[in-house]
Computed example of a mutant assay.
Amino acid sequence: MHIDDELVRRLIAGRFPQWAGLAVRRVPSGGTVNAVYRLGEDMVVRLPLTEGGAADVARERAWLPRLAPRLPAGIPEVLGAGEPAEGFPWPWSVYRWLEGEHPRAGAVVEPESLAGDLAEFVAAMWGVDLPDAPAAYRGGPLGSLDAGTRRAIETLRGVPEEDVDCDAALAVWEAALAVPGWDGPPVWLHADLMPGNLLADRGRLTSVIDFGCMGVGDPACDLFPAWNLLPDGAREVFRERLGVDDATWARGRARTLSQALIALPYHRLTNPSMAANARHVIRAVLGPR
Rank of each mutant, 00 (worst) to 15 (best):
V128I: 10
L189G: 00
E60C: 08
P131F: 03
S273T: 14
L261D: 03
R61T: 09
D165V: 06
Y95R: 05
L257C: 09
A171V: 12
R151H: 12
P180Y: 01
P219D: 01
G287R: 10
P160C: 03
G243K: 01
L177S: 00
N228V: 04
V109F: 11
A58I: 07
A136H: 12
V57C: 04
L269Q: 14
G184W: 04
L242A: 00
D42P: 00
A58S: 13
A226R: 14
T206Y: 01
G14D: 13
P141L: 02
W173D: 03
L193N: 05
G31M: 07
S93P: 00
P28F: 00
I153L: 10
L145Q: 15
F238T: 06
G215I: 08
Y137N: 09
S273I: 12
G233Q: 10
L177F: 06
W126I: 05
T32G: 08
E236C: 07
L198D: 04
R241L: 05
D222V: 06
L223R: 01
C213Q: 13
R157N: 03
G82Q: 11
V281D: 10
M194E: 08
V44E: 00
G181A: 11
R255P: 11
P76Q: 08
W188T: 06
E86Y: 12
A284D: 09
E110I: 05
R61F: 10
